[in-house]
């Protein structure tokens, strides 16, 4: 394989990270919490799609819709049950709850589906394109195209529609937004719904590119996508996209040229360096602490 093909597969992996990172960054921007369970929502989305396609023999488009719907419901329910009662609690309590939810989802999946990885049938029809002497798989092309499309749609939604601007207002100042007549609770629910829906899309793409699924599928991509969100600047949508792609390229190239076993360590090293050198990320805003 040449440098170019590693580069392209890095962009494809990065696009998946970007979709997951969007969920993190929106929730962090609005609810000011790290939704640890986001990675496991991805895993659940993958299992729903797997069950629909392989067990129930549904057509692919219907399976994807079911998966998205299931994730949206799951995301909103998690927010209502676990996070909403803690809205005024200490950050430590919220974080521990989020870890608990993540652990719960993982173990429910473990009890239902078992720990062995199941092979996932790709949702993309088999085709490949020759580009510069390198053949690029259909999954790679579809992943990149879907990610770009979603980021464009999401940017338009947030900047142009009423509920999108309500999200911006809530992320800026929750109290002031409430005084302006914005329903903060439903805005937060909407954020969780969008983030979880994107997670379902990401899960289908992830499981198609790496054709298997296990209860731990979501954990690592989840943490890496959070890294991408921090890299791009928490709260920024183009930041999440660029952060995700850059991280995907770093991972793919370090797997190819340094060591495949140490690639995780390298990605985490990037996270640590970014947080220490520029904690606000590429596009993040800096807030001063007021007493």
């Amino acid at each position: 394989m040449s440098f170019f093909s590693y580069f392209v597969s890095g962009i494809s992996l990065g696009s998946i990270y970007a979709l997951i990172a969007l969920g993190y960054t929106m929730v962090y921007g609005i609810a000011k919490m790290l939704n640890f369970a986001h990675g496991d929502v991805i895993m659940i989305g993958g299992y729903v799609a797997f069950t629909a396609i392989t067990t129930m023999q549904f057509p692919v488009w219907l399976s994807i819709c079911i998966s998205i719907l299931a994730c949206i419901i799951l995301g909103v329910v998690i927010e209502k049950i676990a996070y909403k009662p803690l809205r005024n609690a200490t950050p430590l309590a919220i974080l521990i709850t989020a870890i608990g939810v993540s652990y719960l989802l993982q173990n429910v999946a473990l009890l239902i589906f078992g720990s062995a990885a199941k092979s996932f049938t790709s949702v993309v029809p088999k085709f490949s394109v020759e580009l510069g002497g390198v053949s690029i798989t259909g999954e790679t092309i579809v992943t990149i195209a879907v990610a770009v499309l979603i980021v464009i749609c999401l940017s338009i939604f947030i900047n142009k529609t009423k509920s999108g601007r309500a999200m911006l207002a809530v992320s800026e100042d929750k109290g002031a937004a409430q005084l302006m007549g914005i329903n903060v609770n439903s805005t937060i629910s909407l954020t969780f719904a969008i983030g979880s829906g994107l997670a379902a899309v990401a899960s289908v793409l992830l499981c198609s590119t790496y054709p298997q699924i296990s209860p731990y599928t979501g954990a690592m991509p989840g943490i890496k996508a959070f890294t991408a969100a921090v890299f791009g600047g928490i709260g920024s949508i183009p930041g999440a996209m660029i952060g995700g792609v850059v991280l995907g390229i770093i991972e793919s190239l370090s797997k190819a040229y340094i060591s495949s076993e140490l690639s995780d360590a390298i990605v985490f090293g990037v996270l640590i360096i970014v947080l220490l050198v520029r904690p606000t990320g590429l596009f993040g805003k800096k807030f001063n602490e007021k007493v």
């Binding site: 803690l86 309590a93 521990i96 709850t97 870890i99 608990g100 652990y103 719960l104």
Partner: peptide, 10 residues
């Protein structure tokens, strides 16, 4: 363990 975490915090 997962349930302990969530319930304790709530």
């Amino acid at each position: 363990y997962a349930i302990v975490l969530i319930v304790m915090m709530l």
